[in-house]
């Protein structure tokens, strides 16, 4: 029989399709990989509030403003449960925030692009959340219990977001010429970055092999990207949006679309910090975190004061 605290026993459990729970034995590499991935996911939800928040005060109807507010709240809520899932691996939220702000931890590079017109809110919901869902549906079966359960909950909400995003695009495509132009402009700017969200080709992906062995990742970047492409191109065509790629072809035999090569230079450039909004997003996060320091200190001081009083009267 295997020792319960051995890597071999751990791998056996993974191979049997068991969930790993916080107090279970896990190799350090597994723990590190998960902390990196879950915190990156949490940071993405939180940073993602910024481009969408950019349009809250200009939302054009009472209904759209409520939907957008509710959506951004969902994203923040996802951030909260993901931070909690990461905390089960022995890291604190303040450490995670510090890693984000120092640039040590990443967030999804898609949020380094700006939200420039109202249709961007549609495109973010439809394409960005749409791409995220493909990935997250797959992660519902990930091997780490708290992450897997978080994903189940998150997927339910994200599919609403995607539908709402698509509804905005469809409505604008049925609208005035100016609205159609806004929708197409948003499509042109978000299509390629959305495809990049799945990460580099499998052959160039540095974290894939262990993650697949440990069943943290259940499908590869290219498989997931293809699912998204196949699902999204017909949706674009249905409402009259042109996908900004002249080489799209449907392979009748496989049922898959083929597309032009992704601009990986742009991908690596944005990841390494030189996208349109990398600096803005982090500066914003740091600014409001620092401005809130006195509030957090006050809340802590109040708590300590009253804890002391309670102890004295106990």
């Amino acid at each position: 029989m295997h020792n319960e605290h051995s890597d071999a026993h751990f791998q056996l459990r993974i191979d049997n399709g068991e969930h790993i729970e916080p107090k279970d034995y896990m190799p350090e590499g597994y723990r590190k990989h998960l902390i990196r991935q879950i915190s990156q996911h949490a940071h993405s939800e939180v940073i993602g509030m910024q481009p969408e928040g950019n349009w809250i005060t200009r939302a054009p109807s009472l209904r759209s403003k409520q939907i957008l507010l509710a959506k951004i709240q969902d994203e923040g809520g996802h951030g909260l449960y993901l931070y909690s899932a990461a905390e089960t691996l022995g890291v604190s939220r303040s450490e995670l925030i510090e890693q984000l702000q120092s640039g040590k931890a990443k967030y999804s590079s898609i949020f380094n692009y700006p939200a420039l017109n109202w249709a961007d809110i549609g495109a973010i919901g439809w394409l960005v959340d749409g791409a995220a869902i493909v990935n997250q549906v797959s992660l519902q079966r990930t091997s780490y219990g708290p992450y897997s359960r978080g994903m189940v909950r998150i997927c339910k909400e994200e599919s609403f977001h995607q539908r709402q995003g698509y509804e905005i695009m469809a409505k604008m495509m049925k609208g005035t010429k100016e609205q159609q132009d806004m929708a197409q402009d948003a499509m042109n700017r978000w299509w390629w970055p959305a495809l990049m969200m799945f990460g580099p080709h499998d052959t160039d992906s540095p974290h894939s092999s262990d993650a697949v062995k440990w069943k943290i990742k259940r499908e590869t970047n290219d498989e997931l990207r293809q699912k998204f492409i196949d699902k999204t191109i017909p949706q674009a065509e249905l409402i009259g949006l042109k996908v900004p790629d002249n080489n799209i072809q449907l392979d009748e035999k496989t049922g898959h679309y083929t597309i032009s090569e992704i601009n990986w230079d742009e991908f690596y450039r944005v990841i390494s910090g030189h996208g349109p909004c990398n600096k803005q997003r982090l500066d914003h996060h740091i600014k409001y975190h620092e401005e809130g320091a006195w509030v957090r200190e006050a809340a802590e001081a109040y708590k300590q004061k009253h804890l002391k009083k309670e102890l004295e009267t106990a």
Partner: peptide, 8 residues
């Protein structure tokens, strides 16, 4: 939105 002292 995105400007609170803590996420909660």
């Amino acid at each position: 939105c995105s400007r609170g002292p803590i996420l909660e």
